[in-house]
Amino acid sequence: MIRPLAGMARVGMRFQFAYRSDVIMSVVALVAQVFLLRMVWTSLYSGRESDPRGLTLEALLAYLSLANLQAFVTTPIIPMIAHFRIRTGTVFFDLSRPTGYLPQMAAFQAGHTAGGLLMLAPAIPVVLLVGTITPTEHPIGYAATLALGYVISVMMSLLICVIGFWTLETGAISLLYRLVSHFFAGTMVPLSFFPGALGVLADALPFKYMGYVPAAVYVGQLSGGQIGRAVAVEIGWIAALAGVLWAIWRRAHHKVVIQGG
C-alpha cells in the first residue's frame, strides 16, 4: 500500500521539477502580487493614527506575505491533472491500478507540493526578509494549523477531481474554485476586515484554514485558546470531508466514462 503511493508521490515531485520554468514565472508573479498588496495597503494605512482592527501595518504586511506564500504552496495541481486525464480517457490507467484512485491523487499532490517546497526553499529567506516577517511566538500552533489546513485543501481538491466523473469537463470549475478559495482564504484582505454577512460567510467556510488562520496565528492575531479551537474545527472539517468523499466516491466510480480513441 505504501510503496505504490510513495511511487505516486515521486511522480508528482518529478512533474513539478519538469515544469520548473513555469514555477519560476509563477514565483515572479507571486512577488508582483505581494508587491501590489504591500503598496496598496501602505497607501490605505497612510494618514491613519490608530491601527484598524488592532493590526499594525508591519503585522499586516507580514500577514499578507505569509498568506500569499502559503496559498502559492498549497494551491492544488490534481484538479488539473484529473481534468486532463478524464478528458483524454487516460484516467482508465489510474482506475485500473490496485491502489485506490483518491489515495493515488493525494500522494501525487503531496509529492508535487514537496517538490514545490524544495524549489522554493532558496527563495523563502528572501520572501521572509522582504516581507519583514520575524520569527513567530507560536511555532507549534502555526505548524499545526497550517498542516491541517493543507489536508483540508487537498481533500477539497479531491472533491473537484471526483466531480469531473460527472461533468467530464472541470476546467472552469477548478478555476472558479481557485479564485473563491484564495479570496475566502484571505490572501488579499485579512478575514477580520470582511464586513457583515461576507465576514460571517468567510468565517463559516473552510478556506480560511489555508491562508488566514495559520498566518494570523503566525503574526499573533490569533493566540491561546483560539489556536486550540481552530485546530479542533480543522479536525472536524477533515472528518466531515472524509465522509463526503467516501460517499461520493462510491457513486462516482460507477459513473466513470472512459473517453478514448
Binding site: 496598496v40 490605505l44 479570496f183 488579499m188 461576507l198
Partner: peptide, 17 residues
C-alpha cells in the same frame, strides 16, 4: 468571479478605508 474577486478586494477594504 476572476475579475470580480479583484474588485471584491477593493470593495471589502474600502469598507474600512
Amino acid at each position: 468571479a476572476y475579475q470580480g474577486s479583484g474588485f471584491a478586494f477593493v470593495w471589502v477594504v474600502m469598507h474600512t478605508f
